Amino acid sequence: MAAAPVTILCILFLIMILVTETAASINWQLQLGYYSSSCPAAESTIKATVEEAVAVDKSNAARLLRLAFHDCFVEVRFEVIEQAKTRLEQSCPGVVSCADIVAIAARDAVVLSHGPSFGVPTGRRDGRISSLTLANDLPDVNDPIEVLKSKFHAKGLSTKDLVLLTAGAHTIGTSACFFMPQRLYNFNGHNDTDPSINPKFLQRLKLICPLGGSSFQRLHLDWSSQFQFDDHILRNILNGFAVLASDAQLVEDGTTKRFLQSYAGGYGIGKSSFGKDFAAAMVRMTNIQPKTGPNGEIRKACHKVNS
């Protein structure tokens, strides 16, 4: 599938777009254990599906956390989500939304990567529109830090959330060389290299993503522990070992840099509040203006709206 020119950060925002709308709010609220009566096995079914997928391929955890890597169409195309939906339609037809499956699966993927466990409020409904145009305001990998901050703020997320969600999304998994040419070979349009890249790291990046090479070649986002949810990526970013330009931008702003330094100072997920605060940021993100009640539908298949 051809890569679309959108940011890696859009993958986290996909969950947000799946569950948000601009319609006036009504008296419907998400809640923990929403399916405890209507579909008691909902969360355990999703968890089992995620566990099977990660057992087959560890990189599926990162895919589930970010959902898509090269494009950001506002529809779910990942087969693990579809498999969970199929199983739930067999046991609880028309009950569990794809938006809730996405949110729960992302949490389970984090847990399976040794990250924090957290409750996911549920009760979302799915949108009736799948459109790329809805993704136009998503952060781009080459956005300056002020633009990144403004795009998060526009969704009701703080600068601290920007740091938490960016680092948390990129502590596991890979990216593609598709996102690297501008940073490695045409920085600011001057046929140069981003000077924030640590010289020790630059040679490795250019070796994996040579000029004119395959845009689909993969590279780890966290060189220290690519399959483990931890805070190593925070120190990587601070020390010039950020793979993506959007990650490196977090050092260019005094506020975001202080957040990085604060979390990185803990040295270990058990000694830092990074994991706990990331979990809280994930909940905030998935709780922004969710579609509930009559504002949406329960899709029969996650890749398309109901006919």
Results as ranks from 00 to 15, higher is better:
S158E: 05
C98K: 05
G173C: 09
S117N: 13
I81D: 00
R124N: 08
S91T: 15
A109S: 10
L134K: 07
H153M: 12
L164S: 03
T171G: 08
L162W: 01
R107C: 05
S91Q: 14
C98F: 06
F152P: 04
A109H: 04
H114S: 15
D108K: 07
A106Q: 10
A105G: 07
K160H: 14
A176F: 14
G123I: 09
D100R: 03
V96Y: 02
P116Q: 02
S130M: 10
K85R: 10
A154T: 05
R128P: 01
L157F: 10
S130D: 14
V110Y: 02
K160F: 02
L165S: 03
S150H: 10
A99K: 02
I129Y: 12
L164A: 06
A99M: 01
C92W: 04
N136I: 14
S158I: 09
S91E: 12
A176W: 12
D143Y: 13
T133C: 07
P116D: 06
L112M: 13
V147K: 15
G123D: 10
G119D: 15
G94H: 05
A135C: 14
S158M: 07
D137L: 13
S130Y: 13
G123E: 08
V110G: 01
D161P: 02
V120R: 00
G173F: 07
D108I: 03
L138V: 12
Q83R: 14
I104G: 00
V110E: 03
T133A: 14
S130W: 11
G119W: 03
L88C: 06
A106W: 07
N142V: 02
P144I: 06
G94I: 06
A135S: 15
I172N: 04
P144V: 07
D161I: 08
D140M: 11
G119K: 11
L138Y: 14
I81S: 01
T122R: 01
V110L: 09
L165M: 09
V120N: 01
D100E: 03
R125H: 12
V120L: 03
H153A: 15
D126I: 04
Q90H: 06
G173E: 06
S97P: 01
V147F: 09
I101M: 03
L165G: 01
G123W: 05
G119M: 10
D126S: 04
R125V: 00
K149F: 05
K160G: 08
A106H: 11
T171A: 07
V147E: 14
D161L: 07
N142W: 09
G168S: 00
K85Y: 04
Q83L: 14
K151S: 09
N136H: 13
S131W: 10
G127C: 11
I145Y: 09
L164R: 05
A167S: 13
D143C: 12
P93Q: 02
G156R: 07
R87I: 08
P116F: 05
L112A: 15
V120C: 04
R107I: 01
L88G: 09
S113N: 06
T166I: 12
V95A: 00
Q83D: 15
R87A: 15
G156L: 07
G123N: 09
S131E: 12
S113W: 03
G156Y: 02
A154S: 14
